[in-house]
């Protein structure tokens, strides 16, 4: 009896293998699934950040607390420093920079609040910086350019009103 069962099992297995090896047609991938936008996986739902203009008021939301992402302004550009959350995030050593224009602080190598302008103040034109301050600022900027993505420009409220790159995020 056991032999018969064994033979039956073997016949089934061998038939299945031979069927696949000898008669199966080419395996295909559904192109619609590959191409179609609907049915995105969780990874694809993380859309790249759209590069746009930010006012200091809008930028202030990106402090890692009000909004999860952390942006800082350096010489008119806005950098997404979210990957450096341990530095710029809440309770990080440079957290004062989060959501602000950090240009003067980086130039002066100071992380104190007095070198950071509030969102309701005009954008710092940095006109009084010394040569040493500029060197320091440019070094920092080089580091930011190599490490963090630029997500937009920091513009005044007036410039923002005529901008073609207005942000979609509520301020």
């Amino acid at each position: 009896m056991a032999d018969l069962i064994l033979i039956a099992v073997l016949v089934v297995v061998v038939t299945l293998i031979l069927k696949n090896v000898l008669f199966s047609s080419v395996s295909t991938v559904d192109v619609v699934k590959e191409i179609d936008e609907s049915g995105k996986t969780k990874e694809e739902e993380e859309e790249p950040t759209v590069i746009q203009d930010y006012t200091p008021r809008m930028l202030s939301n990106y402090n890692g607390f009000d909004l999860e992402k952390i942006y800082i302004g350096v010489r008119g550009k806005v950098y997404d420093v979210s990957s450096g959350r341990r530095f710029y995030g809440p309770s990080g050593p440079y957290s004062n920079f989060a959501g602000h224009d950090a240009s003067r602080g980086l130039a002066k190598n100071s992380f104190e609040l007095e070198v950071i302008r509030s969102w309701d103040e005009p954008i710092d034109d940095l006109s009084d910086l010394s040569e040493a301050d500029w060197t320091s600022l440019k070094n920092w900027e080089g580091m930011f350019q190599g490490k963090y993505p630029v997500v937009g420009r920091l513009v005044s409220e007036k410039e923002y009103k005529t901008s073609s790159n207005q942000a979609h995020v509520m301020d």
Partner: peptide
């Protein structure tokens, strides 16, 4: 490798 940012009307 997909970039982290894009411009409006463009892909990354």
């Amino acid at each position: 490798s997909v970039g982290p940012t894009r411009k409006q009307g463009e892909s990354t």
